[in-house]
Structures are given as C-alpha cells and as structure tokens.
Amino acid sequence: AEDTGVRVELAEEDHGRKSAIALRLWVEDPKKLKGKPKDSGAIEFTFDLERETPEDVAQEMIESGFFHESDVKIVAKSIRDRVALIQWRRKRIWPALQ
C-alpha cells in the first residue's frame, strides 16, 4: 500500500468471523498531511467490513476534530488500504467463512 503518512493496523487478532473489527490509526508522518492533525496519539475504533465505508469513518474523524477536513481523502485511503488487505487475507486464509 502507498505510504500515506497515516498508519492503520488491526487492534485485535482477526479470526475471520466478525464483520466488525477493531482498528488502530495514528499519524506516522505529519508532513504528508495538508492540515495539522490533533496531537492525540493512536485512535482506536470499530469498523464494520460489511456495512461501513472508510470514507464514513474518515469523515467522522474530521468532525470529531482529529484531522483537518482537507485530509479526509488521505485518512480514508489509509483505512481503505488496510481494510482491503484484511479482506484479501480473509479470503485467502478462511475462504469458506467469507
């Protein structure tokens, strides 16, 4: 995945069964962002792989004051890349569950 300066990782072990997974997001390189992020650390949240979109979560993070609105796309892309990797891994490891 492209280095967006925003890191997203699983915050729990993925067993491929739950559609809602815990993710953790933090800024690795603030220089890649257009606005100044709130200096708050790692943000943990639950993401539903079946019902939600990365754009929804990114928008809620902007509205909650974690990021400037000009960075909504980069935050969404960071989440989208991680979600795609999780879904790819699920299909590969647990194809029968998907």
Binding site: R7, W26, E28, D29, S40, G41, A42, I43, E44, F45, T46, V57, E60, M61, E63, S64, G65, F66
Partner: peptide
C-alpha cells in the same frame, strides 16, 4: 498511560491512547 474517549454524534466511539515509542517512525 491515559485513555481518552471521543464519541461522534453518529455513535461511533474513538478511543485515544498514546502511540508507543516503538511505533513512531524515525524522521
């Protein structure tokens, strides 16, 4: 370490914790 919780009006909960030093990139 301290945890902060932010709840968005749509109901999503964001839990904020310090990033461990080992996870920060060297610049």
């Amino acid at each position: 370490s301290s945890l902060t919780q932010v709840v968005h009006s749509a109901g999503r909960r964001f839990i904020v914790s310090p990033v461990p030093e080992s996870r920060l990139r060297e610049s």
